[in-house]
Structure formats: C-alpha cells, structure tokens
C-alpha cells in the first residue's frame, strides 16, 4: 500500500507537470490548429534561465525558497518573451499557408532553439541548486510524498485555477474563446485576433516555464535536451485528453503521469517511454478525439 501511494503521488506530481505543458499545446492548437513543436524548447529555456538566476543567487550567498520564486518569475518573463518572438517570426508569416508548412517551421525552430542553448551554454547536465527546504509539517508523510512534490502540486493547482479564472471570467478570456470558436467571426465583432494569438502563445509559454522551473528544481539538473522529451510527452497528454480542450489537457496529463508511474513501478522502468507512446498510439486508434475532445466533422 505504501508503495502504491508513493507511485500514486509520484504519478500525480509528474502528471501535473505534463498538464502544465500540455495546456500550452492545447491552447495554441485550439486557436490556430498548429502543433507548436518548439513548446518543449520554451520549457527548457525557462528551466535554463531559472538555473542562471538561481546559480548567481546561490553563488552570492542567497538561498531558500525566495530565490526559487525570483528565478521562477524571471524565467516566466523570459519564456513569455521567447514564445512571443517565436510566434512573430516563425508562425505569423505562415498564416494561411498549407498545413504542413507551419508544422515544419515549428520543427525547425525546435531544432534551432535546442542547438542555440547547446552552443551558447553547454552540452553537459548542469546541477540545479536545491532550494526547496524540507518542511517540518511534511515529516510524518515524508516517505510517500516529499516537500518538493508538495510545492509542485500546490503551484500547479494554483496556476490552473488562475488560468481557468482568466479564461472563464475576464474580457480577454472571452475574446480567446471567441477566437477559438471562429476566427473570422471574432474579427468581425472587433476582437484583435493577432493580439489574442500572441497572448495565447505568451500564456502557454508562461505555463511551460513554470513547469520547467519546478521540474529543474525537483530533479536537480538541467540540460539543453530536456525540452524535447517533455514536449513530446506533454503533447501526448494533450492528445490523450482531447486536443483543444483545457480540462482535457489536465486530465490527460494526470492519466499519463499515473500510467507512467505505475508502469515503471510495477512492470519495468526501461520501457517507460515505450508505454507512453504505446498509449498515444492506442488512444489515437481507438478514440482519435481524446477522452474529452469533441469530434470535428471535416467539411469540404
């Protein structure tokens, strides 16, 4: 039972991170029907910027959770800037082009950003300073769930509530929903669609960066390549839940996290990634629209 609970919370932690990244995919896909392949790279850049800030802080003697928050805020700002620029340069000129074009452009940008970080930083794994203290009140349950996990769960939970409020309650959120439903109609009723698309990229990037910082401080190391696998898995989560649906992305992330955690714990950890992709293929064959997705009829 203890082992089960450990795997359960491990899966929950992992899944909530996947969900954070998956939200970015799903929001972008919902609006412009593009798989933003470079989204995982934004996550990685977020983690790297946080590492640099946290590294400087620790070297000059500051430590503790406040440094993590500072690093997180700066990482989010930079990730937003990267996401915004990415959309401006690589996707906006391709609006209206055949579907394959922006996708290839996105793959190109993903490779570009990866190698950019590789060249200007380092190909090695860099250790991330451990900034989350062991909370005293977590002592009794520490064998199932540690303090870092708690921080991750609380942060993702709060972030998701804020996101839901933003989308459901604010004017901007209304404009986003309108753009998702029908871009031309939204433009007709006075929504600045270009700005909404930019904003979607910015919000998605911010979520990815939060995920990146949390994972980096949890696992304790950062490398230029971490974004690729995380991106692919988060995309799997988005598809699993039904791409385009925000609740679906969260659900898909959690399901994927649990599936991976239990499969690795009870079957074999060597084939962890195989399970993920196996699940993806299975979902796409049996229910291509995902768990919560609506089937869209293709019209001529």
């Amino acid at each position: 039972m203890e082992y089960f609970l450990e795997l359960f919370f491990g899966g929950l932690t992992r899944g909530s991170i996947y969900a954070l990244i998956a939200l970015g995919y799903t929001m972008v896909y919902g609006i412009i029907q593009l798989i933003n392949f470079a989204h995982g790279e934004i996550y990685m850049i977020g983690a790297f910027v946080a590492l640099i800030v946290a590294g400087i802080c620790t070297i000059y003697g500051m430590t503790g959770i406040s440094v993590l928050i500072l690093a997180g805020v700066i990482a989010v700002i930079y990730a937003c800037a990267y996401g915004f620029t990415l959309e401006k340069i690589a996707y906006r000129p391709l609006r209206g082009a055949p579907r394959l074009s922006p996708l290839i452009s996105a793959i190109g940008m993903s490779i570009f950003l990866q190698n950019y970080v590789l060249l200007v930083q380092t190909p090695d794994f860099l250790p991330f300073p451990s900034l989350i203290p062991d909370f005293a009140f977590m002592e009794p349950v520490a064998y199932i769930i540690g303090s870092p996990e708690l921080v991750i769960l609380v942060t993702t939970f709060v972030t998701m509530i804020l996101l839901t409020l933003l989308i459901k309650k604010t004017r901007v959120g209304k404009a986003m929903r309108a753009t998702q439903q029908d871009m031309n109609m939204a433009r007709l009723v006075g929504v600045n669609v270009d700005r909404i698309i930019s904003l979607t990229f910015i919000i998605g990037s911010a979520l990815a960066a939060i995920g990146g910082v949390l994972v980096a401080s949890y696992i304790g190391q950062v490398n230029f390549y971490i974004g690729f696998l995380a991106g692919v898995k988060a995309f799997t989560a988005a598809v699993l839940g039904g791409i385009g649906s925000i609740a679906g992305a969260v659900l898909g992330g959690l399901v994927l996290g649990w599936a991976e955690s239990f499969a690795a714990g009870y079957i074999s950890s060597d084939y962890e990634d195989v399970f993920t992709f196996g699940l993806l293929v299975l979902i796409l064959i049996l229910r291509p629209s995902g768990i919560l997705g609506k089937t869209r009829k293709q019209k001529v």
Binding site: I89, A90, P93, L94, A97, S101, P102, I104, S105, A106, I107, G108, M109, S110, I111, F112, L113, Q114, N115, Y116, L119
Partner: peptide, 17 residues
C-alpha cells in the same frame, strides 16, 4: 560543423516562410 544543426533548424523555418 558545430553550427550545423542550428543552421538546419533555421533553414527549415526560413525555407517554409
């Protein structure tokens, strides 16, 4: 040659545009 993949990635996007 170390800039190879960097150039490939950029070229893919630029070519599409």
């Amino acid at each position: 040659s170390e800039y190879r993949m960097l150039a490939f990635g950029a070229a893919m996007a630029l070519m599409m545009i």
